[in-house]
Design a protein around this nucleic acid. Structure first.
Length: 464
RNA sequence: GGUGCUGUGCCUGAGCGGUUAGGGAGCGGUCUGCAAAACCGUUUUACGUCGGUUCAAAUCCGAUCGGCACCUCCA
């Protein structure tokens, strides 16, 4: 089946063809590690994970590179404002290096909890300063960048296709620009490739450079590292939708200005998770983390399930009500799977399984249409004709993309103590001592064990 | 000012001209000694508003009223 993906470059869903048959070079913009990731950030990583898993399901060998931005960023292009790493450093009384290390670890904890497959390679910006400098020098040599007072700027007017991705009119950028004026720039739309120390005397993270001690601009790291590990041409580059107009636009300018040819074939962007019709933002403070959800009694995978309910190019409204709905659906699914494991049945209609497989794949192939894929899943889950054996096989197979952990869905082991209580209650029931039986059931329920009496005896479930 | 997205039943969320989206919640039922678990069924002008095209529109066109994002670090 032909996989189709939406390309921001063309604003169309198009057939996906890798540069090299059977192989995909994938680059996803990684986290800036100066704070915890919020659930909005994580939605994008879940989307990218679905993409990665889908590519692999469609038999592509995926080389997946992700950066860790552990260099400070200024708040504006005007070389002023605060450096985020420095701010965090002050706030937590740790060195910027320790801040970065700590939040990188936290990021991967979250990603693991969400069953996000690790990239085949992750790389830190601070470990690739040389590569960035080489690229900056190359841009200067190519006549696309210039040096002023130890700062290096990319000259936007020298790159005619600058707005190819954002589809904005270059002249309109000036009008609404809210960026402060930087007198050193030849054109206010130019952006920084290298900041010299002279503008930031107390910068802790800094490196030698031909232009002065300092640190790289915001965008150069992705261009540099992506190229170092994936080469001069990349199949797919992803990020959040907010990256279209600035970060990715600048990345294209740098990379293509440096190489002199097209750099990325397919650009893909995940929409925002919105909270009360406002976006979730780190800089605005007060954002929701995965830990925040877990503290409220949710599991990370409930959030993953919630993300699966909406298409990645649609905004998803976050609310605890919506998360609760996802949790309920997920737990129902889990119980279903567990019951199949304990009661395998042959189906009456084996042809149906093929039909479901096809429909699920069609949804994936259509630009990762997870809502449709999930509706196919639920149809299969409720289709008794399929038989629990086939249903279980389907779910296990689909889980390579969904990442819900179907293999691990299992009936919990009860401790000997709890087991004794269950037995005691069964005896009470046998003697028709309902009062005692109900009391024991309540007691077990307090410990999260739900009992269900059926014709073939008493069964139990974990209650969430 | 520019670019783009968006307005669907109680909530969420698909839909891209004609056939049931799906999930949650609620309600009803099955099972049960009872039962909060499980399962089954169900909610008969849902598509911002006003026009238009069409045999047929949530889906196309026009107008209009909202909401949001990006153009500054942010997924």
């Amino acid at each position: 089946m032909q996989l189709h993906l939406f390309n921001t470059l063309t604003r169309q869903v198009e057939p996906f063809e890798p540069l090299e048959p059977g192989k995909v070079k994938l680059y996803t913009c990684g986290p800036t590690v100066y704070n915890y990731a919020h659930v909005g950030n994580l939605r994008t990583y879940v989307f990218e994970d679905i993409l990665r898993r889908t590519l692999e399901k469609f038999k592509f060998h995926v080389e997946h590179v992700m950066n860790i931005t552990d260099v400070g960023h200024l708040e504006s292009d005007a070389d002023e404002g605060d450096d985020k790493m420095a701010l965090a450093s002050k706030r937590e009384k740790k060195s910027p290096w320790d801040i970065a290390k700590f939040y990188e670890k936290e990021f991967f904890k979250d990603a693991d909890a969400l069953h996000i497959v690790r990239p085949t390679l992750t790389c830190r910006a601070t470990e690739h300063i040389d590569t960035m400098q080489k690229m900056v020098q190359g841009l200067i040599d190519n006549g696309l960048a210039y040096v002023v007072d130890g700062n290096v700027y990319f000259e936007v007017s020298k790159f005619p296709e600058y707005t190819r991705l954002s589809k904005q009119n270059l002249d309109d950028l000036l009008e609404g620009a809210r960026v402060d004026i930087d007198a050193r720039k030849r054109d206010q739309r130019d952006f920084v490739l290298w900041f010299s120390k002279s503008k930031f005397p107390n910068q802790i993270m800094k490196w030698d450079s031909p232009w002065g001690d300092g640190f790289p601009g915001w965008h150069i790291e992705c261009s540099a590292m992506a190229s170092e590990y994936l080469g001069e041409s990349i199949d797919i580059h992803c990020g959040g939708i907010d990256h279209i107009s600035v970060h990715h636009t600048n990345e294209i300018a740098q990379a293509e200005g440096y190489f002199g040819h097209k750099w990325v074939n397919t650009w893909m962007h995940g929409e925002f998770l919105v909270l009360d019709k406002a976006k979730m933002s780190k800089s605005a403070g007060g954002f929701l983390t995965l830990k925040g959800l877990i503290d409220k009694g949710f599991d990370a995978v409930h959030y993953r399930y919630m993300c699966l309910g909406a298409h990645y190019r649609s905004e998803l409204k976050f609310s605890f009500e919506a998360l609760e709905a996802a949790k309920n659906a997920f737990e129902t699914l889990k119980n279903r799977v567990v019951s199949w494991k304990f009661d395998p049945k042959k189906g009456e209609n084996s042809g149906k399984k093929t039909e479901y497989l096809k429909r699920f794949d069609e949804a994936l192939a259509n630009d990762l249409d997870m809502p449709i894929a999930m509706s196919v899943l639920w149809e299969a889950v409720r289709d008794a004709e399929l038989g629990s054996e086939a249903q279980l096989e389907l779910l296990k197979y689909w889980d390579s993309v969904l990442g819900l952990g179907v293999e691990s869905f299992d009936k919990p082991e009860l401790s000997a103590e709890l087991m004794a209580l269950v037995k005691e209650r069964e005896e009470a029931r046998a003697h028709r001592d309902w009062a005692k039986s109900d009391a024991l059931r309540d007691q077990l329920l307090e410990q999260g064990i739900c009992l269900k009496d059926g014709p073939s005896g008493t069964d139990w479930y974990l209650r969430y």
